[in-house]
Design a protein around this nucleic acid. Structure first.
Lengths: 343, 343
DNA sequence: GTGAAAGCGCTAACAT
DNA sequence: ATGTTAGCGCTTTCAC
């Protein structure tokens, strides 16, 4: 039934030439009309071309355009870790924003490895990508080389590891970390554990430093044994491992300040495994995964407006006048959830 | 520091011609060597070309290749809903598998809307995509038209809505649904609620029908009032809404069979809101989100090997000999977690 | 084993 | 306002 009644499926041999032929005009005219070059075609001509385009269901070949214009409509998004729901959320948001501008998203997972990131950077140069968005960039040779090129490089969440003032979209991690610490302090939580991802990320570093600073200034410095950052890739494992360590050492604390929601998930699980319940010390995370309301009503979290990232990122891409690179710092907000109970 | 000490950043004006010049051979020869056309170049020539390629850091322009070969190295993945962690997981898996074959993933979110899906299908034709992977296809005009084209169309999770025997990757949803129902029955759960996504998805339909059938055959048919499929887009909302309805009607049940993990999340939340606790009826879902172990120890779930999807999909793409389309049915497995307790 | 040349679809510079 | 043409980078005959 499928094969028999199938459509003709001409496999698009319809080029600009066929449109020109059908409209009875030259190829150049078709190109002008399609690209909306004003004052360059009579109303009549425009109509004829539009008719032909519609009738033939014509759409310019990207290969032809890219070759000629030396740039494609592809925007590369290099994510450090697609398994992290956060990255997926940002990617989704970017995709929507790009679509609006008639751009197309290429998604690559660098797995936080410099070699892979470089491989992708190279591939995207070959693709003549319009821009490259780095969701959690890692320092790599090619990244440095590319920084001077005309291809816009947008850094998201993590600042450019090369240290420049490259275009950036993210939150004020220092302020957010400080806010979280101040909130905890205001609740009388003076013996927190700070559990964090590897400090290679500028975002993580800023959060941890701010929290530590606020606690120190309040007269409750957080000693090294309550600052835990196992060198693992997986955030869940980091949290789990850290709390197991804490428990083994018999260290008690009255709050768990984690630099990511996933870390908090891991931390709480380790606690439950060790003591049979989650205790009364509240958990804090960053990102505020949309699922938190449903499965983690015990977790307070710093909400980051990932849904708004896409627009900010695409803005940055398109406003690349070669002018001073801009930073887009989006607002954060601490979402408080009940400290105990199962929810 | 960034600007001053920056690299030259030549913006890749290095074409095959420059390589040929540097190697002292013709363009054609360079092309042959690069593409590994055997027995077509002396060892000496090959060496010279390789040297030039390396020195110039040359990489063929995809635009040039695509134009000439009338096909690109892009593979489109049209996901019905990127916000669903399941889709993200599959996309991640596909991306890795594609990379191995030197292909590039373009990710598009169709939001389950036919118009958007068609828009993307059109765009991908313009991009001369090597293949199109549909993660949850919806029926749409262009999809039908494209089915006869030479561009491989791979259907994932949901069967081709057009009904043909198109290439497919997924699980045996009928068997999985039956397995779940049989397991519940074996535990003496004879008054289940079946909560499901819209039946427009062939996967959902198969699961629901299988569960209902098994229950009916066991002498415990599930009446309509315990089969709930609110016509909402968001799985969390579906579950939440369904259980609220159940509670309002005073209907009791001894198990919640949900066609997706997210639905189960929503269902349980509604239950907790209504009665203060989650009760003793166990929850069942599909997908087995990796986060379940961490945040939903109360949820039993049908594990689907999403990590293996990528390889299967890419296999299907590349084995497109124009021969009989193949189906890749991957194994499912029910993961049982404690029915009660907080975990 | 190697090179010359045509041509993929498109845009822009230059006619007219 | 419209047409002619060059050329973007590449692969692939076809000659040699």
């Amino acid at each position: 039934m499928t094969r028999k009644g199938g459509n003709p499926a001409p496999d698009q041999p319809v080029s600009i030439a066929s449109v020109a032929r059908r409209a009875g005009v030259s190829i150049a005219t078709v190109s002008r009309v399609i690209n909306g070059i004003a004052n360059k075609a009579s109303a009549d001509t425009v109509a004829k071309v539009r008719e032909a385009v519609a009738a033939l269901d014509y759409r310019p070949s990207s290969a032809g355009q890219s070759l000629r214009q030396r740039k494609s409509r592809l925007v590369a998004v290099l994510a450090a870790n697609m398994a992290n729901p956060t990255m997926a959320a940002i990617a989704a948001s970017v995709e929507v924003a790009l679509r609006e501008k008639d751009l197309v998203m290429v998604l690559c997972d660098t797995h936080d490895k410099p070699e892979l990131q470089d491989e992708y950077l190279k591939e995207m140069r070959a693709q003549q990508a319009r821009a490259i968005v780095l969701l959690g960039a890692v320092a790599s040779p090619l990244l440095a080389a590319l920084r001077g090129s005309t291809t816009p490089l947008i850094f998201v969440n993590r600042l450019d590891p090369g240290g420049g003032a490259s275009p950036f979209v993210g939150i004020d991690n220092d302020a957010a970390g400080a806010d979280m610490a101040r909130h905890a302090l205001s609740r009388g939580l003076v013996r927190p554990a700070i559990i964090h991802a590897p400090l290679t990320s500028s975002a993580t570093r800023a959060r941890v430093e701010a929290m530590a600073r606020v606690y120190a200034e309040a007269g409750h410095p957080v000693p090294p044994e309550r600052r835990l950052g196992p060198p693992l890739r997986d955030h869940l494992a980091i949290g789990h491992h850290a709390v197991r360590l804490l428990v083994e050492q018999g260290l008690s604390c009255d709050a768990y300040l984690c630099t990511g929601d996933l870390i908090a998930f891991g931390a709480r699980k380790a606690l439950v495994e060790a003591r049979g319940d989650a205790g009364s010390a509240p958990f804090f995370g960053f990102d505020d995964n949309p699922l938190n309301d449903w499965v983690a009503p015990w977790l307070s979290s710093m909400r980051i407006p990932y849904a708004a990232y896409g627009e900010a990122i695409v803005d940055l891409i398109l406003s690349e006048n070669g002018e001073a690179p801009r930073q887009r710092i989006l607002p954060h907000a601490l979402v408080i959830r009940p400290a105990a109970g199962e929810g």
